[in-house]
């Protein structure tokens, strides 16, 4: 009896433990992210590729700094309407922009992948010298033909790509350490970002 009990306990303990362990890993790394994030698509089809490659536009044509130094971010209807105040072609999405948004005076509710909450003060102007496409803050959509879906956290409402504080801090610490005199103003003090 005792031997049987001992023999069964050796295999009987390890296997359920391993199963539980693996199940938890699968749940934690695969299941939870699928449950936690809802997948959203942009309200309109937009192709950066066409605007850049076919029409020779620059990023700054739409994503520019205003005269007061603030960053315009996503273009508003007025900006788009500089060209698309009426349909230039017959693409249904372009017609939809003109009819459903521009003519009705409704701004397109574009989804922002890097939405930062109001308690974070972030100035694009101060980060101008870093390349948008390689610095790692944004997904590089500049050459994309289709906007990627946005994964929204069901608990917080934030985008999955919203940069966490530790990522900001790491860059501030590393860059500031490399050239302390030049980046004197970029330490990790609270008030640098939380005004």
């Amino acid at each position: 009896m005792e031997e049987k009990k001992g023999g069964s306990s050796a295999g009987g303990v390890f296997l359920p433990f391993l199963l539980g362990f693996v199940a938890a890993l699968a749940f934690g790394w695969w299941g939870v992210p699928h449950l936690l994030y809802s997948k959203k698509t942009q309200p309109l089809l937009f192709t950066h590729q066409n605007h850049i490659e076919l029409y020779g536009m620059q990023c700054e044509d739409c994503h520019f700094f205003r005269r007061d130094g603030s960053f315009s971010g996503l273009p508003d209807n007025a900006k788009c309407a500089e060209c698309h105040s009426f349909p230039l072609g017959d693409h249904p999405e372009e017609i939809r922009f003109v009819e459903e948004f521009y003519e009705k005076g409704v701004e397109v509710p574009w989804l922002v992948y890097q939405y930062q909450p109001d308690n974070v003060f972030f100035s694009h102007a101060a980060h101008q010298e870093f390349d948008c496409t390689t610095a790692g803050c944004h997904p590089d959509v500049g050459s994309s033909n289709e906007m990627p879906p946005l994964f929204q956290n069901r608990i917080t409402g934030y985008s999955r790509d919203t940069m966490k504080m530790k990522t900001c801090e790491r860059c501030h610490a590393e860059v500031a350490a490399k050239e302390p005199e030049r980046f004197f103003g970029a330490p990790n003090a609270c008030q640098i970002c939380h005004k």
Partner: peptide
């Protein structure tokens, strides 16, 4: 033991 494995596994997620 399955539950213990689950708890331990969770700590690695």
């Amino acid at each position: 033991t399955f539950a213990a494995g689950g708890v331990a596994g969770t700590l690695f997620t």
